[in-house]
Design a protein around this nucleic acid. Structure first.
Lengths: 244, 244
DNA sequence: CGATTTGTTGACTGGTTTCAACAGTGGTGG
DNA sequence: CCACCACTGTTGAAACCAGTCAACAAATCG
């Protein structure tokens, strides 16, 4: 491989990529650009001509609510592609913000037709990941709609771990969490105050330990049964993909 | 057209369908089958070999929560395709239930490769609708995560109307709602008791009127501003689709 | 007509929000 | 080097929205 692409690494996790899939991906990652922590890379209502591959750092997409609060609808990690949900619209539906210093590969939406016409395997994979996201979102909807604050936090941590494990299999149970409690509350539909209380409670019960921007999951099984977590990230069914 | 397909009608709303798209759809609607109200057409954990086109009647998909409650994650109307979110998995993630007497067209998941290889326009359209669903779901997430009960009900009604209008443009502001309040509470993450209270409150304020399984929206503008509703159903950007 | 489902209403409870004060941390400039 | 400020996390007290439990009314069905 010409360079170390976390997008390639993440996608290969699901299916061995054909050469033309690899070529298509390389074409999406031609350009690179850095953004500082806190930068709003695009705003709601911007025309969306670009998608982005994440090279480095965490970002998130959020919507502003009429009462001034925010709902963070997606957290983006290295190896993710940002912008698919919006391609059916002319305008962005969310604000994209860098949670820390990041490096992105922007590519025009129009380049996707190249994927669809030249790399059917990659097209099918992207489609499968898009529809899987619906399932992940509905899981999350259950968490936000039906669970208590500490259960939601458990869910949040387990979901992050499941995602990070795709890119980094031998990951331990400790990981960096470059989001503050206000941001976490905007993900989970809570207040920063109650996120603080619930985190403290989980720590007091010995389920997790926090240390300066990192989280260690001490009792993964208990967290899983606390929120009935199902890992939707680990595997997908690729049997129906078109054969090369 | 050989028969009156609401799937064709719904998809044509977005883009004029090419002949090979129409042929592909016809192939998905070969078989028909009826189910009675209340039937569980498939359960969570069933192997998912079939998808379904809805011909007639409403259905919904729900997940059982560990405490015995349910979360309804999707309501299916005539002209919808049921099952896309699960195609990346070997097993169903939700239970599919008929909200009233329904008629479905089951077709095997494997038939989709035919769509991908023979009808690129249809493939792109289905992809666009799938990713758009993510946006709709995140909108809904905001409603469930951040809004009061009466705001959620407003959102629910407006979303239904927006969907029904795709299939039936000259629809008035009155529509049939074949779901009971317990089912609505399972959609919105509320209790049946509070759904009742909130409905009554909305009616008392003159925003809606109910009559025996139908709802009339009296003050659509007020409902819209109450929950900051955005209609994501009306139009999609098809400019990037592959040309025939 | 009785039985079941569905919707309504009341009283009480409780988890989360709100408002507020305060502590710890890091960064900045004088 | 320290004063100052912004940001972040913590804790307490009070208020409130929605849940829970329960009884009952209304509609539907066989």
């Amino acid at each position: 491989m010409s360079h170390d692409s976390c997008l390639v690494q993440k996608l290969s996790h699901y299916v061995p990529l054909s050469q033309c899939s690899l070529d298509s991906i390389a074409c999406l990652e031609r350009e690179e650009r850095d953004y500082d922590r806190g930068t709003e890379i695009h705003a709601e209502g911007d025309s969306n001509t670009n998608l982005y591959v994440v090279r480095q750092g965490w970002l998130y997409s959020y919507a502003d609510l009429k009462d001034g609060r925010r709902q963070i609808v997606e957290i983006h990690h290295p190896g993710d592609i940002i912008g698919f949900p919006d391609i059916a619209f002319n305008e962005r539906t969310t604000v994209l913000k860098a949670a820390e210093d990041v490096r992105l590969c922007p590519f025009p939406k129009k380049d996707l037709d190249q994927v669809f016409s030249n790399a059917p395997q990659l097209a099918a994979l992207l489609f499968a990941l898009a529809v899987r996201n619906q399932v992940i979102l509905t899981d999350f909807l259950q968490a936000v709609g039906r669970m208590s604050a500490r259960e939601r936090i458990a869910y949040f941590l387990l979901d992050l771990m499941a995602r990070l494990r795709i890119a980094n299999k031998p990951m331990s149970t400790t990981f960096r969490l470059p989001l503050n409690q206000t941001e976490i509350s905007d993900v989970l539909g809570l207040t920063n105050v109650y996120v603080s209380r619930s985190f403290t409670a989980l720590q007091k019960d010995g389920l997790i330990r926090r240390d300066n921007g990192t989280v260690e999951v001490l009792e993964e099984d208990k967290l899983i049964s606390l929120c009935d977590f199902v890992d939707r990230h680990a595997r997908i069914d690729t049997s129906w993909f078109p054969k090369p």
